[in-house]
């Protein structure tokens, strides 16, 4: 998996949490789509999104790197190269 493929995976998952019709592209900021308070405890969109991206990286042979602490306020294009 390369960075471009990872961006496509990230956009696929963001689209599946996008309950307010935000435009999903490389510039989409995570906090405009995801939320930490839209579920029961950690069964929320922000937590699930992060978990499925980490699962994808591990299952496709990549290191499970720590995410930058500001990822939630950043875009798809910013985050993808930081975690692959």
């Amino acid at each position: 998996m390369n960075v471009e493929q990872l961006k496509k995976v990230m956009k696929y998952h963001l689209a599946n949490f996008n309950d307010e019709g935000v435009e999903i592209n490389n510039d989409t900021i995570h906090n405009t789509v995801l939320s930490a308070i839209d579920g029961y405890g950690n069964a929320n969109s922000k937590y699930i999104y992060r978990a499925v991206i980490r699962w994808t990286l591990k299952k496709n042979g990549h290191e499970d790197k720590p995410w930058p602490s500001d990822w939630f306020d950043q875009s798809v294009a910013y985050l993808a190269p930081k975690i692959i």
Partner: peptide, 14 residues
């Protein structure tokens, strides 16, 4: 599979 990458299906029931 998204762009030839295996990933959880988040538009399926989980």
């Amino acid at each position: 599979e998204i762009s030839e990458v295996i990933t959880p299906c988040t538009n399926c029931y989980m």
